[in-house]
């Protein structure tokens, strides 16, 4: 087991390295940030001074090495726009994004797993078909349309929920949840579909296995069959899809945070891209990619715990 974890960890290193290089080179290609930084009246000399101060006049390889060395020390440099440490800006925004991702994953699983199992159980009748079509439809509506409809319904018409913003946990759990309900639902719409589909497929596969037939034959109740065998075996693909889906969640935060004005990393990304704030973009992409890699690492490990065959 430890061996497996060790090799999986080893496998993640080149991915992380490649992402770092790609991110660095890609954004260097974006052109000179100094001109936009200094504004309309900058002289050539001012530009040269700033370029020197930022190390932009050194060879690209040197720039990369010094950058990556600093990154290892948790120093992502200084924002070109606010002139603040990048990590400070990003970490200030982590709370909202983490909260939203967490509630989305929990909510999606709570809704989607029963939904998928239910569909599997009523396979081939109208309940199944309804759930499946709902799932296909859910995949087809853009998140921001769902978001606007939710705001209109819950905040404007019914006035149950705040229309925007984020309340950090230290202002109370109730306030925190209240602000997250609508964004969570909006973001979950895609994720629920994904998990429900895979749960259904996994469950159907398991239901066809011989031991299930045996269990039924010896008179085990449907509920018992589901609890003991189906859910357990379907858990493997469900865990996998969470790994794949984390990419979707990370994409979702960019849109959802914009619609609901949540001060999270997703909104910071858009702002930084529009302002060509390289160091921040670098930091955010690295952060998102590493999250993706490590969640998938964790998923693989859980996967191998659930299904020992994988390890070999």
């Amino acid at each position: 087991m430890l061996r497996f974890i060790f090799y999986r960890l080893l496998g993640a290193i080149p991915v992380v390295g490649l992402v770092s290089i790609a991110v660095f080179l890609f954004l260097r290609m974006a052109g000179d940030p100094v001109a936009s930084l200094l504004g309309e009246n900058a002289t050539a000399q001012q530009v040269a001074e700033i370029r020197h101060a930022m190390g932009l006049d050194r060879p690209v390889m040197m720039q990369f090495l010094s950058w990556i060395l600093h990154v290892f020390q948790g120093d992502f440099g200084i924002s070109l726009v606010t002139h603040e440490p990048v990590w400070k800006m990003v970490s200030e925004r982590l709370g909202a994004t983490l909260s939203l991702s967490l509630t989305t994953i929990v909510f999606s699983i709570l809704v989607a797993v029963p939904l998928g199992l239910f569909a599997a159980r009523h396979r081939k009748n109208w309940i199944d078909r309804l759930i499946v079509s709902f799932c296909t439809a859910g995949f087809s509506v853009p998140t921001f349309v769902v978001g606007y409809l939710l705001v209109w319904l819950f905040s404007i018409k019914l006035q149950w929920l705040p229309a925007q913003g984020y309340a950090s946990l230290d202002r109370g759990v109730g306030d925190w949840i209240l602000h997250l309900i609508a964004p969570t639902i909006a973001m979950s719409s895609v994720f629920i579909v994904l998990i429900a589909r895979i749960t259904r497929a996994g469950a159907i596969e398991v239901l066809n296995e011989d031991y299930i037939r045996t269990a039924r034959a010896i008179g085990a109740s449907e509920l018992r069959v589901f609890r003991l065998f189906v859910l357990r075996n379907a858990a493997v693909p469900i865990v996998t899809i969470i790994g794949v889906g984390i990419g979707i969640v990370l994409t979702g935060v960019v849109v959802t945070e914009t619609v609901f004005n949540l001060p999270g990393v997703g909104r910071l990304t858009i702002e930084s891209v529009l302002a060509r704030d390289f160091p921040v973009i670098q930091c955010v992409i690295m952060l998102f990619s590493f999250t993706y890699v490590f969640i998938n690492l964790a998923v693989d490990i859980i996967y191998s715990l659930l299904d020992p065959r994988i390890r070999n």
């Binding site: 705001v151 404007i156 229309a163 913003g165 914009t258 004005n261 909104r267």
Partner: peptide, 18 residues
């Protein structure tokens, strides 16, 4: 001063007293 990139959201917030 609170930033609202989306004016609609700002209007919603004003309506709701946020």
């Amino acid at each position: 001063w609170i930033e609202f990139r989306d004016a609609m959201t700002a209007v919603n917030a004003l309506t709701n007293g946020e």
